[in-house]
């Protein structure tokens, strides 16, 4: 089943064509990796789908419904969830509380103010299982700012998963993390995607990671999708390699 359909999306910032006519389709359960040089428009694509910015033209169809003009909250409620490129967590809270907040929102408990949290055993149990899924259990009681950057990125992803999304969009979940830890994070994320069966869109800068873990790969350049196909097919394409390398080092 089609879950997301983008029709000729355009977003210009002054003269910069961040999105220059993006059309594509995602099917349920699909995992797409997006790659492209700096400034290709990858983040803007996620921004547009999540409602962080609104496109100049084009349409976003989600489960046969036009959500081009929906607010971010409406989209979250429909199951569209994103993470941000830079770590974006609740910095004075513990790892555990970071995940709880997300669960509270997912269950619509945020208006409940007469009973203390310990009486909501349903979310407490779910928080434990998410901690387990991402192997964060032993760090649960630490302040989020006191754990390693890689672990913070993981909590950031866990916050998104806690919302029980249908479509999850992760913006460079391994950026800023030491190369040796990237594999670990990627494995945990893919495992979580497998277990939940969520449709996912992952931006990734690191070509090694993409070629190792990607299935369907989408290449963006100057606001356009210049290639979209299986990982083997993309890997072989010399033209694309040139753009990716050129873009990175330009």
């Amino acid at each position: 089943m089609e879950i997301l359909k983008l029709v000729n999306l355009k977003k210009y910032f002054g003269g910069v064509r961040a999105l220059d006519g993006i059309s594509t389709t995602l099917h349920e359960g699909e995992v797409v990796t997006i790659i492209g040089p700096n400034g290709a428009g990858k983040t803007t694509l996620i921004n547009t789908i999540s409602g962080y910015v609104f496109p100049d033209s084009g349409r976003i169809i989600y489960m046969n419904e036009d959500i081009t003009k929906s607010t971010p909250i409406e989209r979250v409620n429909k199951g569209i969830v994103r993470s941000f490129q830079l770590v974006n967590t609740f910095d004075k809270l513990t790892v555990y509380e970071n995940i709880l907040v997300s669960l509270i929102s997912s269950r619509k408990y945020q208006n409940k103010m007469t009973k203390t949290l310990d009486s909501y055993t349903d979310i407490l149990e779910e928080a434990e299982s998410i901690l387990k899924l991402f192997e964060l259990g032993d760090k649960a009681d630490n302040l989020i700012t006191s754990i390693s950057y890689g672990d913070r990125k993981l909590v950031d992803v866990a916050i998104s998963f806690a919302l029980n999304p249908k479509l999850i969009m992760l913006d460079e979940p391994t950026s800023g993390v030491a190369t040796k830890d990237k594999d670990d994070i990627m494995k945990k994320i893919l495992e979580a995607i497998m277990k939940t069966g969520v449709t996912a869109m992952i931006i990734e800068h690191d070509m090694d990671i993409v070629f190792r873990y990607g299935k369907r790969v989408m290449v963006m350049h100057q606001g356009k999708i210049i290639a979209d196909g299986g990982v083997e097919e993309i890997r072989k394409d010399e033209e694309i390699k040139k753009i990716l390398l050129g873009g990175v080092y330009a």
């Binding site: 967590t89 609740f90 970071n98 907040v101 509270i104 929102s105 208006n111 409940k112 103010m113 203390t116």
Partner: peptide
């Protein structure tokens, strides 16, 4: 200490 309270802290932080 309710879900509401934790939500407020989250809004405060980010």
């Amino acid at each position: 200490n309710s879900p509401f309270g934790l939500t407020l802290k989250a809004i405060r932080d980010n």
